[in-house]
Each structure stands twice: as structure tokens, then as C-alpha cells.
Design a binder for these strands. Structure first.
Lengths: 112, 112
DNA sequence: ATTTCGTTTGGCAAAATAACCAAATGTTAT
DNA sequence: ATAACATTTGGTTATTTTGCCAAACGAAAT
């Protein structure tokens, strides 16, 4: 892996890392239904304002969301729509995994 | 966010977290071209054997890759093909971002 | 001009991750 | 049975990430 490629992989990992947190993932999926202000998100999540704000700034810095200041509020929206297909694939991984677990269990539990 | 959903988001984040590391991302993209044994990966990455092994086990535990022990070697392959579309989207995020940077710069650098 | 409201920032302690070394495991070859 | 090889596991230390509190900020209402 040469230097140029290493930098590229670091950049990509950085984007993924931004998505790799339950709260941030929730925010992203929520924004898929349309823009929201920070206050909306905070009230639904049940975490500190500052915590939510920091999570959003991670997403913003990664280029996943963009903001729009209107009056006192800041509205956020998804910048890259494909992020959602994306999450569908994650769900596929999960289904796949639980499927395997089910099969493993049914093997173990087979009665004579 | 109720308890059931919280668990779901944690599970999804866990999968994403597995992908959110430069080395692991490289491994995944590499496996997209066909199965590889750990030794192949180690020699191309230039990291410790144990380090690579641990990265792979993170991917395996997340349900992204699966292994196949043959002789002394363990071969790994992608378990969920859609992971690749996925990475294409990450690349879209990056393009989008650098695009924005270019525009910002060209704005700043406009001569009178 | 001061207050109020929505949001961001700074700082800090707790928890999670990462990389290396050394040692253990399991499998084939001698 | 022993040696050689491929891989995994343990353990340690350094680094990063997280979440909350308090404080700062900027816009709009009074």
C-alpha cells in the first residue's frame, strides 16, 4: 500500500467513522425524512444539547450533512443521498448474521 | 428513541465501526477481488501479523467476512457483496467534499 | 441595551481502540 | 515425536473517542 493510497483509505475510513456511532446513525436516518433543527433532534434523542451538537459537527466535517442557519435555528440535511442505500446494506449484514445464528442454534438444538 | 431501537442502532453502528479503519477498509476492498489468506494480506500491508489478524477478526465478528481453513492457511472472503456499493458511496462523499473545497477556493481566489 | 433562545466550544474524566511484542495453538512435513 | 509454518490470543501502553458540565456566542425579541 503506497503513500497515496494510504491517504485515500484514511479519508474513506474517516467518512465511515463519522457514521459509525448509534446516535449519529440515528441522526442520519432521521435527516433522510427531511431537514431538522438541532433542537428537534435533541428532544427526540434524550442526550445533552452539547453532545448532539458535537455529533452533528462530526457528520458535517465528514461531508455527510450540511447546515442552513435560519433565524436562531440551524437546520441540517443530508448532503449525500446514497448514504441511505448504504445503511440498507448494513441491515443486510445484520440479517445475514442473525440468519447464521439461527441456523447454528437450530443445529445445536435438534432433538433426537 | 426507545430501547429496541437503541439496540438496533448500536448493532448497525457496530458493523460500520468494523469498516471504519483504513487497514480494514483496504482488506475489504482487497477481498472484493477474491479470497485471500492472512499471509497475503500481511505481506501487502506491511503491518504485524497479529495486527492484521486482529483486524480481520473484527470484520469477521461483524459479519462482513467469513473464513475457510484449508491446510495451514486461513482464507477469507467477503460475505456481503453489497459492502462494495457502499464504499462507492463513501467515495461519492469524498468527491462531493473536495468539489466543495475547490469551489470555495476558486471563490476566494477570484482576481479583480 | 438587555434578555432570551438555540447552538457551539472548551475542558475533563471514563471508556474504547490500536499496535506491537511475546507466547500459545493447530496443522502439515520430516 | 519433533520441527516448521500460519494464524490467533494475551498483555501493555499510547491514542482516540465519548458525554457531560459550564461557559461563550450570535440572532431576535422585549
Amino acid at each position: 500500500m503506497d503513500v497515496k493510497n494510504k491517504t485515500l483509505y484514511e479519508a474513506k475510513a474517516h467518512v465511515l467513522k463519522a457514521l459509525a456511532h448509534p446516535t449519529r446513525l440515528w441522526i442520519v436516518e432521521n435527516l433522510a425524512n427531511g431537514e431538522r433543527c438541532v433542537c428537534d433532534l435533541v428532544s427526540e434523542i434524550g442526550a445533552d444539547f452539547s453532545t448532539v451538537s458535537k455529533h452533528i459537527s462530526v457528520l458535517k466535517q465528514a461531508g455527510i450533512v450540511e447546515d442552513d442557519k435560519r433565524g436562531k435555528q440551524v437546520f441540517y440535511r443530508l448532503k449525500v443521498p446514497c448514504v441511505m442505500n448504504f445503511i440498507q446494506c448494513v441491515e443486510a449484514v445484520l440479517r445475514n448474521r442473525t440468519q447464521a445464528q439461527v441456523e447454528m442454534l437450530s443445529g445445536e438444538l435438534t432433538l433426537p
